[in-house]
Design a protein around this nucleic acid. Sequence first.
DNA 1: GTCGACATTATTGTCTACAATAACGGCTTT
DNA 2: AAAGCCGTTATTGTAGACAATAATGTCGAC
Lengths: 222, 222
Amino acid sequence: MAPITVEHIAERIWLSIAERRLRPGMRLKEAELAEIFGVSRARIRQVLTALERDGLVKTEANKGAIVAEPSAEEARDIFHIRREVEQRVLARLIGHLDAEKLLDLFAHVAKERAANATNDQREIIKLSGGFHLMLAEMAGADFLWGLMRDLVSRTSLITAAFRDSDKYNCGPDEHEELLMHLKNGDLQKAQHAMVHHLEHVENELKLSGNLDLARSLKDALL
Amino acid sequence: MAPITVEHIAERIWLSIAERRLRPGMRLKEAELAEIFGVSRARIRQVLTALERDGLVKTEANKGAIVAEPSAEEARDIFHIRREVEQRVLARLIGHLDAEKLLDLFAHVAKERAANATNDQREIIKLSGGFHLMLAEMAGADFLWGLMRDLVSRTSLITAAFRDSDKYNCGPDEHEELLMHLKNGDLQKAQHAMVHHLEHVENELKLSGNLDLARSLKDALL
DNA sequence: GTCGACATTATTGTCTACAATAACGGCTTT
DNA sequence: AAAGCCGTTATTGTAGACAATAATGTCGAC
């Protein structure tokens, strides 16, 4: 049996948040999580600090951790910064790209397509974020990769919080279009496609209106 | 006496790195640090994960932590992203600014000036970074604030690694000029001043120089 | 009956001891 | 003598026990 690692647990929680099974504001008690995953509290503590770093949970001293409750303004900040980071990633990637990497990327998109066909939500979420992280990793820029991991996590949370439908769709088509431009070595078009892609995701969220799902108790009663 | 908190230790190490008393590549053994600061290893562990999040140290599984060794390319990435984030901070700040906050900001610059006058390096470092964090905090944007904390830390490291002179100078004059534009409510000029300020800092680095060896850990921290 | 102080309980924060792992040095072997 | 294997040692990873803190419920006074 595979060992239960910190990353494994963190991913599990991330997916639960992205799938809306864990809602913003929900409390995450250490002992409870330790019981569920069959590990010690020390391990859970590491998981929670990692999740906090990625903006998925918020912890307060002596009060424990809850699933983060992003505001609409924060969501816009995140998309704004993400736009810049992704463009930078592409600029750095252009120099490091070779045929093998391109093949890997296209293969990844193929997997996304397969997951979409079978409607496997969990897989779709993992692969959608994975595509963007893959670009950052191939760019060989550790700092940007770390930022992207953060931004992808936060985007998942935002999507879960502000999207109407249950579908999480960072579409394969737009990913593939992007790859075509990369294959042609056309940075500007690739960046443009990326920006368009992100705007597409952002525009499907209800960021302007009042958010109605999973607010805190006091907000719900006022 | 004040209790030794995690943040306190982290700041202490951050300052040592910024002052070049801890050099990139230097090993940070948990037991040693615990001894020096008179706390348990568990506490040190928290400190190291916090420092890793801010890009100041790099840890490898079962191999411990070392002071991070940023590359010149990474440095450029960091400055590039920081430029965007700072501009966003200013954009968000404009709406939240009032007379009291402006006074606090000017007071902060005055402190910077005082520290410069007495040539108190440690204070200069703290205040220089603090100014930028103050802007982010006043903007009321948690996400951007977190990013800025990260970026300020990394900038300190970069400055320590790639700068010739021992002076760390995020000048008060340029900070004050920025504040004047904010006071006038002129976002564009403020952003322009910020970009210029950051370029100024970046241009004083030499991105080909490399680093030399390490002294003892105790000496670096005392 | 309501407000406030106090005791109780639940939860997080910290420390110490133990286990696992990787670096180091000596030994054997060719 | 050099290279590779193996045992020792140093260092990190993990777990469980204990302490501190905040939330909750209860009792008493006005």
